[in-house]
């Protein structure tokens, strides 16, 4: 695919779904993943999909804040468009898959959905026979995600953060897709006024569902601190988080079709965040780096405040 074609598809896709998701045509990607999974039983399906929950989970738990400053009372409303992206490293591109029972070797390294060419492995004890694993679907070094986010407050130094994008089913092209996230942030400074930094604690829960295929959940609790320098805010935080993904598909092996349900857990459990926000007259720009098992970035544009 040419870079231009990819760009056009990506931009149109994003605009069409209200700046919600990533830059690939979602329905096509879903269809391709389902096809690749068709011949994969549980363990191999898990290995093939695991990077998706690692990266998607890291993205879903990113970009919730770009300051720890929350006043005790006063009307606050802020609308952000937040883009996140996780780095697709080499460890996200391969996994050890199981060959059919009795095959030698019993396992072989092949690609996940983020790799390119699936491995064909020859049976070393039965010359002339071999087994091949499916190719990857995505060719990327960066797995993006875009969401709108609304932050409202402040009541007793507390803000609510909401992300919500309902995408109806569009014929057979795009399945019903829903993103929802909710969280609370609470200022600590009102209780400890002598702190040299703005400090807040937070908890967030999120859900991303592609009907009939994926159900992802994210959860995060943490603390963040920030300091203002004129129009610049430097912020950082520490969070504990989890992410899970359930995937359902039909596996057809040797003419027998069986439904498969996989429950996967994302790799990220602890993340450190460091970022900076530029506060201008009517909007602000922000960007941060998130370090954990998965490295993620978030950046965006915010209005209000």
């Amino acid at each position: 695919m040419s870079k231009q074609r990819c760009l056009v598809r990506a931009v149109l896709g994003m605009l069409a779904i209200g700046l919600l998701l990533c830059s690939v045509p979602q329905a096509q990607a879903q269809s391709d993943i389902e096809k690749a999974l068709q011949s994969m039983s549980g363990k191999n399906g898990e290995g093939y999909l695991q990077p998706a929950v690692d990266l998607l989970g890291a993205n879903m738990n990113s970009g919730y804040y770009h300051s720890a400053s929350i006043s005790r009372l006063g009307f606050h409303i802020e609308f952000d468009i937040v883009g996140m992206g996780s780095l697709v490293g080499d460890k996200q591109k391969t996994f050890n898959a199981q060959t059919p029972a009795g095959f030698t070797p019993a396992t072989a390294k092949t690609v996940t959905l983020f790799g390119e060419t699936g491995t064909e492995v020859a049976n070393t004890t039965l010359p002339g026979t071999s087994y091949r694993f499916p190719d990857g679907v995505f060719k990327t070094s960066f797995f993006p995600f875009v969401v709108p986010q609304l932050t409202v407050g402040n009541v007793i130094g507390t803000q609510a953060v909401v992300r919500f994008v309902p995408l109806p089913k569009i014929e057979e092209m795009i399945p019903k897709t829903t993103l929802f996230a909710f969280g609370l942030r609470h200022s600590i400074n009102q209780w400890l006024p002598l702190l040299p930094l703005d400090v807040a604690v937070s908890g967030f829960w999120s859900s991303f569902t592609v009907e009939g295929f994926l159900d992802c959940k994210g959860f995060s609790v943490g603390a963040q601190a920030s300091k203002d320098f004129s129009v610049l805010t430097v912020y950082g935080g520490l969070a504990y988080e989890s992410s899970t993904m359930s995937a359902e598909y039909e596996c057809t092996v040797l003419g027998t079709t069986t439904p498969v349900k996989l429950d996967l857990t994302g790799a990220n459990t602890v993340r450190f965040t460091a970022g900076v926000a530029l506060n201008l007259a009517v909007f602000r720009l922000f960007a941060d780096l998130n370090v954990g098992s998965v490295t993620a970035f978030s950046a965006g544009l915010g209005f209000g405040g």
Partner: peptide
């Protein structure tokens, strides 16, 4: 930027081995 950074694309051709 978000749409293009990282060149997120679907592989040009994808092989599915069918049992």
């Amino acid at each position: 930027f978000l749409a293009t950074s990282g060149s997120t694309c679907i592989n040009d051709t994808i092989i599915y081995p069918l049992d």
